[in-house]
Design a protein around this nucleic acid. Structure first.
Lengths: 210, 210
DNA sequence: ATAATATTGTGATATATGTCGCATTAAATA
DNA sequence: TATTTAATGCGACATATATCACAATATTAT
């Protein structure tokens, strides 16, 4: 496994797909071909091979790639090998859903606590996670060295809460609000843009319907 | 507004962002410049102009674009002008969150009903939407000419439920499960891939941390 | 032992997306 | 009225991503 310079964003986005397949295959087989992965995902094998080359793994001609080596490489690249603690802000419908989604653990994200401004919810537990007053966010996150904040608040307060998060030492925001956040460029923002996704769906549907 | 051949996916994904800004501006001003839109979104003005050119709108040099014309063009392109009915399958945490999310209406999506297999939930209402037995899905959707299915079931049953949806006449699936669906290529699938999004966040964070 | 097959890796090419430079236009200003 | 300014539009260019063609390699079958 050689050293790697940088991996493209599209490649990074496909890694979880590969990982899911690799985990399935791992108990059954030692090697896997790019063809097999590509077929299962509806991709081109050449793309899979390029991606795997990109993360620094080499396969063996006529044999394929070593499954465990692949898993290791992806985990390492993604930081899945070191579980990351995160906090969530906003316990509305979406926030609660995210708290209850046990799939994140599989990808190394561990939501340790939630924050909200609503006094009726503060002090409760949602899906086993304690809900704190957003006022104490700063002291808590700093003490726990938490880097990731999951933002699931109403759009109107998104920017304000984001500022609070950053002041509290959060480096990375996973933004589920539709608001474009204005942040310093040393802060990482990853947008989950449902409106964009729906827009793509609509336009494809429109194209078919006529 | 001239005829247009096709709009790129990245452009389509940015349209909701533009729309949000246009709606804000509409009451206050008749025209808007690409510079202003770009600044608010942290984009390049040339990109905004190319996007707007792409959807077939022309601006006026030294003046800008007509706000109402822009709104009209985006709505028409996206099918937002005709509200689309959809059904949702799977009323777990995520499904409930989606049912309660009132933002969809703004983008022309109207979830009229939900379906689940759990007899304890069937017959109830969630956020005002009735929950039906998944067994009756077919008859209902066909009768109502519904084209869009929102898939929020557990991964294990995703493919099975997707097949059911397609048999019931659904043309487009908004897939919130992490499963790659195997469908005929006349069926549109738009994937909301949280794992991919999280992967991007992790890799950026990893790049910064070292 | 030889041939056929399945597979990787690489350099070249194609396509998609984003950006630049600059001429043109119209409003605002001097 | 002339000049400056803010804006669009277009063709060329740059970058990012995906795909192709083909040589090299190891396994399997003949």
């Amino acid at each position: 496994m050689k050293e790697l310079t940088s991996v493209s964003v599209p490649t990074v986005r496909r890694l979880p797909l590969y990982m899911a397949i690799l985990k399935e295959i791992e108990p059954a087989s030692e090697h896997v071909s790019s063809t097999l992965i590509a077929d299962r995902l509806g991709l081109e094998q050449i793309q899979v091979r390029k991606d795997l080359a990109g993360i620094g793994v080499t396969g063996q001609p006529a044999v394929g790639f070593n499954v465990r080596e692949l898993i290791g490489a992806i985990e390492q690249l993604r930081g899945w090998d070191t579980m990351r603690d995160a906090i969530l802000v906003g316990t509305g419908n979406l926030g609660q859903a995210l708290l209850g989604y046990d799939g994140f653990a599989r990808y190394g994200l561990n939501i340790v606590a939630a924050f909200d401004a609503n006094p009726e919810i503060i002090g409760m537990k949602i899906h086993g996670k304690p809900v704190f007053d957003i006022e104490v966010l700063s002291s808590l996150t700093e003490r726990m060295h938490i880097q990731i904040g999951v933002l699931a608040v109403p759009g109107k307060v998104a920017q304000t809460v984001a500022d609070t998060l950053i002041q509290a030492g959060i480096h990375a925001i996973w933004n589920f609000t539709p608001v474009k956040l204005n942040v310093d460029n040393n802060v990482i923002v990853e947008q989950v843009d449902l409106a964009a996704s729906l827009a793509v769906l609509s336009s494809k549907l429109k194209a078919v319907n006529k």
